[in-house]
Computed example of a mutant assay.
Amino acid sequence: MPKQFRKAGELPPCAHCGQPARKTTGEEIYLNHPDLADRIMYACDPCKAYVGAHKTNGAALGRPANAELRKARQALHDRMFDPLWENAPETGGYTPEDEVARKRIQNAARARCYAFLGARMNLAPEHVHIAEFDVEQCREAWRLLKGVTYPQIRDWSKAHKRAADKGEAA
């Protein structure tokens, strides 16, 4: 799924039926969370699927997902993917001098982790985002990341870049 719908005002397609979701708010989706009432959301009523939007421009954060898919995406993020890049300053042997440097390391690590995952899943870069995955892609990503460390991803990234600079396949 291309990220083309990720522009402000565009309706994202449902991850289940492919139909454009409708724009709504957190007031409808999160009935017991008044703090989220003003958040822009996109919902697919037949599939009981929804996704949030960027606070700044209202662009969808991915494709609407039902409860099963939201759970799979969240588990992949929380238990497998995010710890790789969030802990990169420590696990990668870096010593950031301040919080700005730490964030810079994490941002670079996140990009490397997505590039690594995309290469392993044979997905073009514009198709690699967990918020666009279906349940089977979440399972595949989990299998591919199991046991992988950030230093391994960093080494892969360096080798991939060297090969690209030489015009070779990594």
Score class of each variant (00 low, 15 high):
residue 42 Y to A: 11
residue 93 G to Y: 00
residue 148 V to Q: 08
residue 102 R to D: 09
residue 134 D to Y: 05
residue 99 E to W: 11
residue 61 L to V: 02
residue 164 A to L: 00
residue 43 A to E: 15
residue 127 H to Q: 06
residue 136 E to Q: 09
residue 170 A to S: 07
residue 15 A to F: 04
residue 88 A to T: 06
residue 1 M to T: 15
residue 58 G to N: 11
residue 97 E to V: 14
residue 142 W to R: 14
residue 156 W to T: 07
residue 123 L to C: 05
residue 51 V to E: 02
residue 160 H to R: 11
residue 2 P to C: 04
residue 107 N to R: 14
residue 95 T to Y: 08
residue 152 Q to Y: 05
residue 154 R to K: 12
residue 101 A to H: 10
residue 137 Q to K: 00
residue 159 A to H: 01
residue 129 H to A: 13
residue 90 E to Y: 11
residue 16 H to I: 13
residue 131 A to Q: 06
residue 16 H to C: 03
residue 98 D to M: 07
residue 27 E to H: 12
residue 160 H to W: 12
residue 45 D to H: 02
residue 28 E to T: 15
residue 58 G to L: 07
residue 79 R to A: 15
residue 68 E to Y: 08
residue 17 C to N: 04
residue 55 K to G: 15
residue 106 Q to R: 11
residue 107 N to L: 14
residue 134 D to W: 05
residue 94 Y to K: 01
residue 120 R to P: 00
residue 125 P to Y: 06
residue 79 R to N: 15
residue 21 A to H: 05
residue 11 L to Y: 01
residue 48 K to M: 10
residue 58 G to Q: 01
residue 5 F to C: 03
residue 159 A to K: 02
residue 9 G to C: 06
residue 102 R to K: 13
residue 44 C to M: 10
residue 169 A to H: 12
residue 44 C to Q: 01
residue 27 E to Q: 05
residue 75 A to V: 14
residue 69 L to I: 04
residue 17 C to D: 00
residue 61 L to G: 05
residue 159 A to Q: 03
residue 129 H to Q: 06
residue 5 F to Q: 06
residue 107 N to H: 14
residue 146 K to E: 14
residue 90 E to N: 14
residue 9 G to S: 01
residue 141 A to P: 02
residue 70 R to G: 02
residue 61 L to Q: 13
residue 97 E to R: 15
residue 121 M to E: 08
residue 136 E to K: 08
residue 41 M to P: 03
residue 54 H to M: 09
residue 121 M to V: 05
residue 48 K to C: 10
residue 12 P to Q: 09
residue 36 L to M: 08
residue 160 H to F: 13
residue 148 V to K: 13
residue 62 G to K: 03
residue 118 G to Y: 10
residue 47 C to K: 06
residue 3 K to N: 12
residue 130 I to D: 06
residue 65 A to T: 10
residue 133 F to K: 14
residue 125 P to D: 12
residue 111 A to F: 04
residue 95 T to L: 08
residue 73 R to Y: 04
residue 110 R to G: 08
residue 74 Q to D: 15
residue 137 Q to Y: 02
residue 92 G to K: 15
residue 113 C to N: 13
residue 78 D to S: 11
residue 111 A to S: 12
residue 133 F to I: 00
residue 73 R to P: 03
residue 148 V to P: 02
residue 9 G to M: 03
residue 95 T to R: 13
residue 131 A to M: 05
residue 44 C to T: 02
residue 61 L to D: 02
residue 45 D to N: 06
residue 124 A to Y: 10
residue 51 V to W: 03
residue 44 C to S: 06
residue 105 I to W: 09
residue 128 V to L: 06
residue 145 L to E: 07
residue 110 R to W: 06
residue 23 K to M: 13
